[in-house]
């Protein structure tokens, strides 16, 4: 009995040690996966890749860039801005982004002398550009102005999206509705009912 309980105890300990070691390895792997990343844009419209003009512009800016966004907490636009800045950061790592809630820091907004609800400040080499709306085109344009570069090529950065038209006839829509909302659910429900009936009979 004592031998058995001792073996059992050893096995328990072995189980704990192995699990801890594996979990420790997994935590380290997650840290490494964040440190060394590789990304690829698989969207057909390349909507997540900066245009050639923006990439070229960022390569010509040696100093760090600081972006301050005065946007209220809880706004979904915050995550959209983060995603956009991440795209720029992938090309140039010394870009920092800070969010400030204008309701919590009204004095900072007062100093900016702007009536707009959302304000984004882009700073480069102690010069500041004020934006009310931010996308790749506006940010690249602001950066090229701050660096005293030619802004002409930046003005045509708009990407065309795929699938802006949908031409489905009424008949096609009715068939689609019937297949999705009627035929598929009916097949599943009928099969479920048959199984339930068989189980009940058994």
């Amino acid at each position: 009995m004592t031998v058995m309980s001792r073996i059992n105890q050893q096995l328990h300990l072995k189980n704990i040690v192995i699990t801890t070691l594996i979990l420790f390895t997994l935590v380290n792997l997650s840290w490494l996966s964040n440190k060394y990343t590789y990304q690829i844009d698989i969207s057909t419209s390349s909507s997540n890749t900066l245009s050639f003009e923006s990439q070229k512009l960022l390569n010509l800016l040696p100093e760090p860039i600081r972006i301050t966004a005065f946007i209220e907490k809880g706004q979904s636009i915050r995550s959209q801005i983060s995603q956009l800045v991440d795209r720029f950061k992938y090309q140039k790592q010394d870009i920092s982004l800070i969010f400030i809630d204008p309701q919590l820091h009204p004095e900072q907004i007062k100093n900016l002398k702007s009536s707009a609800k959302d304000i984004i400040l882009v700073e480069y080499q102690n010069r500041v550009e004020k934006l009310n709306y931010i996308d790749e085109e506006s940010l690249s344009y602001a950066l090229s102005q701050l660096a005293n570069m030619d802004t002409h090529s930046i003005k045509t950065l708009l990407k065309t999206n795929i699938g802006t038209h949908l031409n489905l006839s009424e008949k096609q829509i009715i068939v689609l509705n019937a297949i999705i909302l009627l035929i598929f659910p009916l097949v599943f429900l009928t099969t479920g009912f048959i199984i339930w009936h068989k189980r009940k009979a058994a």
């Binding site: 979990l23 997994l26 997650s30 996966s33 990343t37 590789y38 690829i40 844009d41 969207s43 995603q83």
Partner: peptide
């Protein structure tokens, strides 16, 4: 979902699954 496939995002899910599977086996 945006179409930008980052190795960190993919590995997050693999490591997430591995963690819970290891805990279940334990």
């Amino acid at each position: 979902q945006t179409g930008l496939i980052n190795s960190a995002d993919i590995l997050y899910f693999f490591l997430f699954v591995a963690t819970f599977i290891v805990l279940s086996i334990s």
